[in-house]
Design a protein around this nucleic acid. Structure first.
Length: 378
RNA sequence: GGCGGAAUGGCCGAGUGGUCAAUGGCAACAGACUGUAAAUCUGUCGACGGGAGUCUACCAUGGUUCGAACCCAUGUUCCGCCA
């Protein structure tokens, strides 16, 4: 279980195609994983997720701990059966909430004291708490409890996060080894280090030294430039073991995915396809479109003529804009549907190209086609 | 026919003598969103001008006043109640 096989590699870039074996099926990489924080990929049913070829989805420890809570999830027999999703699930540890809910908490080496964003009640998060909860959730892949730091961060702050992330990885590992079922669940380590080369190296060495079945890159896509992100990935590509899956956390902007794959990343997750979909922005092979724009009012062409999704096969931009302008639920659903399929397909196409030996051309074509937004950091 | 009430920017609706080009909300237009406190948030929203600013505006006309969306008169339209 949890064997990772690299089945093809790009001779020019760091890209590779692989297979990762989990209790709920084999994941073909590179892969994009839709985010389903609250035991639902917002606006999509499990059947629809299967239809767009989602191989694995995310759930969130913090959110599911608050609602519905560990008792109900235990009674439900875990997250898979609770939400009727029988393919792989990866659970985030709650570490990211230590970052995104920063104002509501106090962090020490021992633990994180946090106020619920729902009712303000106090809770204590720790590596042990997270491993216990992820055990209850029964995800195929559990994540270490880490500390993601904001951008920009001073070297001292970033170093503190690196130290703490290593400390917490050791504690996550220790608790996991004695409480969780390692045949049913794999624990991935997370590398931090912000945009500091020395800290990235140090964190990667420390975390990879703990010998996890997979490794994640955290602390990116938090406001740094794209070039800084790519630089960090270049450094890590040389350090992280080639024979384990590598997961770039929180990245979903299409060019970032392609560039990430080129730097040896196998797995991605991001709220961008779902959130932007609900907010009526879509990604197409030629770039990003705000579908509330008046320019689409009488455009009866599909969102993306090259896309094979339900939305693109059936509906016009004019109709979709109409749904968006009226705030109709169906609009949010159809945009989400398209964005997820579009993003998943990028990974699929990259995989095909890697196997076919044409990955560099794929990157070139994609970059030429996809119009980068002016404000997106270069 | 009589009595009472009301008319404000695309719409709804505050404002009842100077600090009003006029609060809010909606609509519209533009933008943002990267391990989800997000079906959310931000900006613009009379005209002209880069800006300082200028002009046209609160049903119409006339008046009072240094000054009127706001007070007075008349008219128009609408809404109640009574015949």
């Amino acid at each position: 279980m949890f064997e990772f096989r690299v089945i093809a590699q790009c001779p020019v870039t760091g890209a590779r195609a692989g297979e990762f074996v989990t209790p709920h099926g084999v994941i073909r990489t590179p892969v994009f994983m839709p985010v389903g924080t609250l035991a639902t990929v917002k606006a999509m049913s499990p059947r629809e997720l299967e239809e767009i070829n989602a191989q694995i989805i995310l759930g969130n420890t913090y959110h599911l701990y608050l609602r519905p809570g560990p008792e109900i999830l235990t009674k439900a027999g875990g997250l898979h059966s609770f939400m009727k999703w029988d393919k792989p699930i990866l659970t985030d540890s709650g570490g990211f909430q230590v970052f995104s809910l920063a104002r509501l908490q106090k962090i020490t080496d021992e633990n994180v004291l946090c106020r619920s964003h729902i009712d303000g009640s106090l809770l204590t998060m720790s590596p042990e708490w997270s491993m216990n909860m992820q055990g209850i959730l029964g995800s195929d892949i559990a994540m270490c409890f880490d500390q993601c730091c904001e951008f920009p961060a001073s070297h001292d702050k970033a170093e503190e996060a690196v130290k703490r992330t290593t400390l917490w990885a050791e504690r996550s590992r220790k608790y996991f080894d004695s409480h969780n079922d390692s045949q049913r669940q794999a624990l991935f380590g997370i590398v931090q280090g912000s945009t500091y080369d020395d800290l990235r190296r140090r964190s990667a060495e420390e975390i990879c030294g703990l010998d996890f079945p997979g490794y994640a890159v955290g602390g990116l896509s938090v406001g740094e430039s794209h070039s800084a992100m790519y630089h960090a990935l270049d450094i890590l590509n040389d350090i992280m073991p080639k024979n384990k899956p590598r997961y770039l956390m929180g990245v979903g902007y299409p060019p970032n995915i392609v560039e990430g794959i080129a730097r040896g990343i196998d797995m991605f997750d991001c709220v961008m396809p779902t959130r932007n979909g609900r907010n009526a922005t879509v990604f197409t092979s030629s770039g990003r479109l705000n579908m509330r724009g008046k320019i689409h009012a009488d455009d009866f062409s599909p969102l993306d003529p090259e896309c094979d999704c339900y939305t693109c096969r059936n509906f016009s931009r004019s109709y979709l804009r109409h749904l968006a302008m009226c705030g109709e639920i169906l609009g949010a659903r159809l945009f989400t549907w398209h964005n997820l399929r579009f993003t998943i397909r990028i990974a699929e196409q990259a995989r095909e190209a890697i196997i076919a030996g044409t990955f560099p051309e794929f990157v070139k074509n994609f970059t030429e086609m996809f119009h980068e937004d002016q404000n997106s950091n270069s």
